[in-house]
Amino acid sequence: MCIAVFLWQAHPLYPFFLLHNRDEHRSRPTEPVAWWDNGEILGGRDGLAGGTWLACSRNGKIAFVTNVREVGNVAEPKSRGELPVRFLESKKNPADFAKEVVMEAHRYNGFNLILVDLSSKSMIYVTNRSKDGDVLVSEVPPGIHVLSTASLDTPWPKAVRLRSNFEKFLEKHGGSELPAEEMANKLMTDTTKADKTKLSGIYSVDFEHSLSSIFVEANTEQGRYGTRSISAISVQISGEVAFYEKYLKEESWIEHTASYMVEQTGTG
């Protein structure tokens, strides 16, 4: 379970601005945000399957994935975390990579995938759990969007709350510089839970209630579960990217930021 709010091509200083929470079992091996072996991909890494929930590349690509809240699983599914990695490693633009994903989407459990190419100002949303049952590929329009474990911009209570609080920050700062770390630490640590009557009804009421806050802390049969990392990615019109992460290591929260300039290489 994850949640993200992002601003796309709708701010005078930031072509892209993202706040993101990754929720996962505490026992799942995880590596914090870092440059990967080839020095081209920056992101966190799942220590079990090797993929990522959120990462970016030096050539101006960004990708992140969430699961979809559902009952039942695909037999022997492929890891959803490999999708962002494959996009970042490929030479394909978001639309072309989305076509590749469509052909094999049935092999994954439910996912939402955001593909970004800053150079071409292109953002594509892909999900294999659309309302009509088909794989949905759509271009994301400029503006503010929220993605949780339902379709993009589904107005679940936590998504509505996050969007509203995000908009208040934007109104406060207008067209000036946004305090990414402050926003991440204020907006993404919200533990307010939804009214039980407004839950989706996919899981049990008690379990869904424990997941209904932006920042999640829950106990499950598999052990402790909840928000393990809080991230902010800001991309300035100059091409400077700042990737801030606050992650949980044992019982301590550790903060760090990595920055770089987008290489203007274009995509094919």
Rank of each mutant, 00 (worst) to 15 (best):
D46F: 05
A180P: 06
L113H: 07
V85N: 08
E251C: 09
W53C: 02
V102S: 05
S213G: 07
T154F: 08
L248F: 12
S120Y: 12
M1H: 14
D23E: 03
T30M: 04
V65F: 02
E217Y: 14
D206V: 08
E70F: 06
I41R: 04
T220L: 09
E82K: 10
E182R: 13
R58E: 02
M188H: 07
K193T: 14
F166E: 00
R28Q: 07
S252R: 15
K172Y: 14
G268I: 11
V216R: 11
G43C: 06
E171I: 10
K198D: 12
K168D: 04
H11I: 05
L19M: 08
I62Q: 01
F243V: 09
V205S: 06
W253A: 01
D134E: 13
R86C: 03
P141T: 07
V135E: 00
D96S: 12
T66A: 00
E82W: 11
E250D: 15
R26L: 15
E251R: 15
I144P: 09
T191E: 05
S176L: 11
K196Y: 10
M103H: 15
T191D: 01
V65S: 00
P179T: 01
G143C: 10
S119H: 13
P141Y: 08
A10V: 07
P77H: 09
L136G: 03
H256K: 15
E167K: 14
D23S: 03
G223M: 08
T66M: 01
R129G: 02
M123L: 06
E82Y: 07
I202G: 00
E255Q: 13
P141H: 07
R58G: 02
D46Q: 09
F215M: 00
G268C: 08
F243P: 11
A34K: 15
A98E: 04
R228P: 08
D134K: 14
S231Y: 03
R58Q: 06
I124V: 15
A75T: 13
T66W: 02
L18R: 01
G50D: 03
R161M: 11
S151V: 11
Y14T: 13
W156R: 04
F6A: 00
G143H: 10
P179A: 00
V126K: 03
T227F: 00
L113G: 05
E250W: 14
F64W: 06
I144S: 02
N93R: 15
K78V: 02
A258N: 13
D153N: 10
A10Y: 09
G47S: 07
S138C: 07
L248W: 12
N73T: 15
L162F: 12
S238M: 06
A194R: 06
T220S: 11
S151Q: 14
P32S: 10
G268Q: 13
K172S: 09
